[in-house]
Every structure is written in C-alpha cells, then in structure tokens.
Design a protein around this nucleic acid. Structure first.
Lengths: 177, 177
DNA sequence: TTCTTTGCAAAGGTTTTGCAAGCTA
DNA sequence: TAGCTTGCAAAACCTTTGCAAAGAA
C-alpha cells in the first residue's frame, strides 16, 4: 500500500497551482514500487520507464524528480557517482543513511535512529524546519587499502566490496594518465 | 601553523611514486589559509589563484583536488549546488557537518560529536575503515516557507537566510519556465 | 634520464532550457 | 479557455582526457 497516493499528490500540486499529469503519476508509482534500498538516477528511471512501455522524456524526468524533491516527496542522494539518485523520502520507519566505498562507489544502507535525533536537536536549536538529513560515511574496502589505495591502477576494482546488495557501479576514472 | 606541511605532503606523495609540484604545494596552502567554515569549488580555487597571481590550469586543479581527496587531505563536499566543494579534512578539532537551505543553498557548519561517534560505531560493526563522514541537514529558511516554497518564483531568494557567514550562492535554476 | 605532471583544447556526461504543441483544471 | 506541462533538440555546465612540452626525482 502506497504511503502517498496519487490523489494526495494531486491535492498538493493543485494547492500550488500545479497539475497532476500522467507522467507525474507514473513516476510516483515507480518510486513507490521500488524495492527498499534501491535508488534511481534520472537515466535509470528513463530506461526503466522506456522498457516497461511508459516512455517519458528525459527532460520531463529531470523536471519531475526535481519538483518532487523540492516538495519533499523524493530524497535526492549524492553518492559520489557523478550524478544524483532519488528515492522516496519516507520519514519513518524507512529513514536511513548510506555508506560508500570511495574506491568502487558501492553503497550500503544503514539505519541509526540517533542520527535523526541529533538532526532534530540541531534543527530545533536553529529554529528551522527539517526537510531531510543524510549521513554519508565514506569508507574504503579493506582489500583496496591492502593493495595500496590511493595508488591503485586506474581500473582496479574492489571485488570484495562492502555490500553485495547493490550492483557494482563504474569506478570513477583514475587519476593517472 | 599549518597542520599538514609541504614536506609531509611530499613524503606521502613520494611514497606512492608521485611528485610534489609547485602547483600542488600552492593548492595545499590555499586550503590551509582558508578561514574556518569556507569551502571552495574547483572554479573558486581557479579564480582565487588567478587573481592572486598564481594561476594554475583548471585541469590541474581538478586533478589535484581529486588526488588530495583520495589521499584524505581534502574533504569533498556535495552541498546540492551542482558542483563539489572542498575543504581541509581535519579530523579534530574541526570535524563538522553542514546544514543547507534547499531554497538558497546557503550553508552553515555545525559540530556534533555524537555523530562521529555513531559513524565509528557503524564502521566498526562492518569491519571497515572510516575515511570521512558527512551529515548534511536539508532545511528551508522560515521566510521561504512562509512565502509558499516550493511554489516560489524562480529567482526569489531568501534574504534572511540561515547563515550570514557565507556569501549567498546562486539559486539553482527554477522549475517553472 | 626517466617518468610524472602540467596546460591546452577538445570531448564527455549530466542537467537545463527555448519553443511549439498538447493537455489539465 | 488559460496557462501549466510535455517532448524535442540544442545549449549549458561541470569534469575528464589526449597529447606534447615541462619538470621532479
């Protein structure tokens, strides 16, 4: 059962003078049906929609995820891969943080309630309103360290990376030439 | 007094078969003399060096900040402005986190020791090594909320933003057309 | 002397934008 | 019907890369 319905989206959009379109509804659905722990880039979303017969133009996708992030419906993740990823911004019980290997960019989620508590404390102190908080832990796979990171050959890749749950993403281009 | 000297940098570089160049030393100096709380983009750094008569090419700057980040000397910040910012990666006593207004991107630093503690706990649980941890709190200036964010005109800007310590950065392009 | 590093210019990848047509409220 | 939204193509933006010359060890 979706936490956030299309009609709630419509109400919220109309409230601002905006409109619910089939594209916006479709995009919301994709995120609601995304397995816990996944997050999509604009390109991922574009591809996934295209292959499922619901093609939406890339520009609309960019406009929509940006809009939904600003509305607080999506969460914009910067996971050091050179592009943003998006996921539903569920406050609880699925609020979580990320751990990223700086060598292979592999990402793992973790939960930690006390971080959210610290954020709320911090926010309260400033009299502001919390939209989201993201803790990113940068780490390095033990194997990469042992092999002499950061002096590794440019396309070397941890194969015993920090999580098996995510497919490996491309290694960021090396420093050497 | 710099926490990290040029000769320490040289030693560490040479250890990997790399070299200390005037450009690398100059860039280290800029970061060491940066007032606490500031962080520079590659472009900022390029401009600052150029105007102070130490011009270094943009590509060298990109290569250097990336190298130094991987070495753990700099900290790479993703503050939702569409490009990365860098600052010295001092572990203590200046380890800190950031609070960003999603409307105007103005950024404030804050300290919170318990966050670092939670990271260490998390890392230990996974048997990995901590390189850095960054908590980013996304918030919204009260004024922007009052005015109807996220439905604000595209170049509206909080003027009573969350911090005075940072010059306002450009607002990210609006959603409307 | 060897091999890394630099600077330049060009390319690459992601994201944004102008505009005419389409569609929601 | 008014005006927001879409799709397309082009542009903008940040970052990376190939290559020859310069420079560190």
């Amino acid at each position: 059962m979706p936490a956030y319905t299309a009609s709630a989206l419509k109400a919220e959009l109309n409230d601002k003078g905006w409109r619910l379109t089939p594209q916006r509804e479709t995009i919301l659905h994709v995120f609601q049906n995304l397995p816990q722990g996944n997050h999509l880039s604009a390109e991922d979303l574009h591809y996934q929609l295209k292959t499922s017969g619901h093609a939406i133009s890339l520009s609309t996708i960019y406009r929509t995820v940006k809009l939904m992030s600003r509305m607080g419906i999506l969460r914009e993740l910067e996971l050091a891969e050179g592009h943003k990823h998006y996921e539903l911004n569920t406050v609880s019980p699925h609020h979580h943080h990320h751990m990223v290997c700086v060598q292979c960019n592999r990402t793992t989620e973790f939960d930690n309630d006390s971080i959210l508590k610290q954020c709320l404390k911090q926010i309260e102190k400033s009299g502001l309103q919390l939209i989201d908080c993201q803790l990113t832990i940068y780490t390095i796979c033990p194997e990469a360290l042992r092999r002499g990171y950061p002096g590794l050959p440019e396309n070397w890749m941890c194969n015993n990376a920090i999580a098996q749950s995510q497919p490996p993403v491309q290694i960021s281009p090396g420093l050497s030439q």
